[in-house]
Amino acid sequence: MRIACPCCGDRSLDEFIYHGDATVTRPDYSMPSALDDFIAYTYERRNLAGDHQELWYHAAGCHAWLVVARNLTTHRVLNVSLARDVALARLDTAEGGA
């Protein structure tokens, strides 16, 4: 498996560190449901066989945090984005919807 870093190009897997499911987001602590939300955020994972959005850190390269879309049954990498861009897009959507 290789990951095409947007900054460094196609790189070997052992340059990267894995940080799990990228779809979980830190909940709002001021909400009444905050306790349940934080437990789900910290411990519960969807973990299904299929396409998975996940965080990778390019530790032996440019130090960028990446969001990689990858199929868990084939290990095929479908898409790689900078985590910053994904977070900003998420923010835009949230504001747009508000």
Binding site: G20, A40, A49
Partner: peptide, 18 residues
Amino acid sequence: GNSSRVATMAGLRLPIES
């Protein structure tokens, strides 16, 4: 190995990654 897949059919989300 497949606990999350089966549990999802029952509407559960587990503290597990495969």
